[in-house]
Nucleic acid binder design. Structure first.
Lengths: 357, 357
DNA sequence: GCTTTTTTTGACAGCGCTGGCAAGACAAAC
DNA sequence: GTTTGTCTTGCCAGCGCTGTCAAAAAAAGC
């Protein structure tokens, strides 16, 4: 490394042993400037002479200097920490959210703290409030069902921490949100079934605590009524997004001696899998006897035959966008990405579980 | 709240507005003691008079005081932050690990930072070293395949951060580890197949970068040789833990005109699913024509028929135990839980994919 | 009673960094 | 030339807490 190239680093300063952490002081001494100037360079602040900047950067490189995040947080206004709160049993969903958020965080040197919470705990609000008092997070991301809980919103707002909600159902406009248009997706899926000739369509509701469940049902009924089809109440079954609840719904649909729909729209894939499992056991063929479609594009779908027609949610992209809203102020992009309700596109994936009749 | 009950809190001190964060100073003033004493109480240090302790606790409660984690970290020796590094595409595995670690962390007020890494990045070592220099973590948890990579171990050791490896393959004794006995599990699974009358047993190897893959194969061959069975090299197929590689292996096994084993032991469930998918397409019945067993008890197994015989790994418990080793010094339990190689029990789950012949 | 030991408490420095402000350097304007 | 304005840089305080050490208080010993 050619030090002389720009300015002169102080001679005779000991270089660090491997594994030693060097502080801003070491860099300042080596570069022959004040620590404040080093701080300016490390934070990309303006008003530093190009020559000085280079000199500091070289010293920092030489010492393998990395600013101490904790000290920065304590002294400054930012903690470089984003938190994500969730209570969701679906590992693949959570994993996608985490990956999306982390991908965006890394671009700005932020780190991610994960904080699973029990949505039914009576201490939920206290837990969140305590957590936010303990760690001054720069932003919080809320996923369903927490993002629709009054106590959660209240705790985060009281702490004054910026937050973004992913796929909320209630309180639009109360915070920035990122989501896809679930009602629209369900609407289009239903239209697809209708186009395929189905008019006797059953529906399995999702977990009532998840806002998305309601939106999906809304989209379904809207498409039905626009097509002049009157939904049959006994063909709408309550589910809870789980495989087992899908099994129950399937049993109810396929009960002997009853008429059954020609297609069933399940609010998510897991329940669709449950229905398909029951169908197989009862000798009901899919899609020959009943068409099935789901929602979410769950990863298990390649395991079962036929592959289910479903809606793909861009979960990771949504999470990335959510983190983006939180980090936007770093870039100074005020109006553009903040205080928004961002809608990301979904995808209707046609596979083999729906047939034309 | 009866303040007078023990000591007298200072009168005339303003209570905080909702959402305001109070500092150790506020508590000290209200309780009429020095901040150092408050610090002692908050950290459960000895040598505080019971009466004083109560007085401080009441003041802290009244003010909803929560110590600032960042300030504690900077001033003290601990950061209350644990990091987990991973590069694993399996969401359910990662999720279990996270949940186990968090469960243990919460007991001591620690928080979890997740740091997915690209195992094949040329910057891996630099990334980890930089990260550890930026945030002084109190401990790091390494999962496969990172836990077997020299550069990763080197980076963590150079930073002087305590770490625990989950299910490592190489370098036993280099750090505390937590795992289950994968070789033993594979051994017992193979014995089970042999007991069921199988002597012609195929094997699908796992990803060569994952140590567990080798251990599973070792257990397999050991059981075979103990039973006096000579393994056929052409019945050992290379897989990569993915569904697709299982499909490939299945095709190879079931190629027309060739003799095939009566049972196939797949190094994990996803590959077993792939094999079963191929079998179904080719009209090969399971378990009538071929018995199949897997490893890991992947969540998708309830979706496919027959349910696969497999090994259940107590992933969450392993992760919990790993965090425990890291936090053990908080409890002062030196010899007991540190510097150990903890082995957790597995479970052989017999389902319908293996039949006696 | 007094002295010695132990327990309890507080003063103070400082962790590594940033924010505010003022001083110094330099260029532009008069 | 001097004055004004702008750009660079450094000084200092302090973020909220813990570690060290010494002082004060209480308990124990004689």
């Amino acid at each position: 490394m050619d030090i002389k190239a720009s300015g002169e680093l102080k001679a005779g300063v000991n270089l660090p042993a491997s594994g030693t952490v060097s502080t801003i002081n070491d860099v300042a001494r080596l570069a022959g400037v004040s620590i404040k100037t080093v701080s300016r360079v490390m934070n990309n602040e303006p008003n530093v002479r190009a020559e000085t900047r280079t000199k500091v950067q070289e010293a920092a490189n030489l010492l393998h200097y990395r600013p101490n995040l904790l000290a920065r947080s304590l002294a400054g206004a930012r903690s470089f920490l984003i938190g994500i709160f969730y209570d969701n049993p679906n590992p693949s969903y959570i994993n996608s959210v985490q990956n999306g958020v982390i991908r965006r965080c890394r671009e700005n040197g932020y780190h991610l703290l994960i904080e699973p919470q029990d949505a039914h705990s009576p201490d939920l609000e206290r837990n969140i409030a305590g957590l936010l008092a303990t760690i001054r997070l720069d932003g919080v991301i809320l996923t369903p069902p927490l993002c629709d809980m009054a106590v959660v919103l209240h705790a985060v707002e009281a702490a004054g921490v910026p937050y973004v909600r992913i796929s909320p159902f209630l309180n639009p406009g109360r915070s920035p949100t990122v989501r896809m248009d679930e009602a629209r997706a369900a609407y289009e899926m239903t239209q697809h079934l209708i186009e395929m000739g189905h008019r006797d369509i059953g529906f399995v509701l999702g977990h009532p605590e998840h806002g998305g469940a309601h939106l999906r049902y809304q989209g379904f009924t809207k498409a039905l009524s626009e097509a002049g089809i009157t939904p049959r109440p006994d063909w709408v079954k309550q589910g809870f997004f789980s495989y087992e609840s899908g099994v129950d719904a399937g049993k109810a649909f396929f009960e002997a001696g009853k008429s059954r729909p020609t297609a069933i729209f399940s609010s998510n894939d897991y329940m669709a899998f449950g229905i398909m499992g029951v169908a197989q056991q009862m000798g009901i063929r899919i899609p020959e006897d009943v068409s099935i479609c789901g929602f979410d594009d769950a990863p298990g779908s390649i395991l079962i035959w036929p592959h289910v027609t479903t809606i793909r949610q861009p979960v990771e992209d949504i999470a990335y966008a959510a983190a983006e809203v939180l980090l936007a102020r770093d870039e100074g992009e005020d109006g553009e990405k903040r205080d928004t309700d961002r809608l990301l596109p979904f995808e209707l994936i046609k596979r083999n579980s729906v047939r034309a009749i």
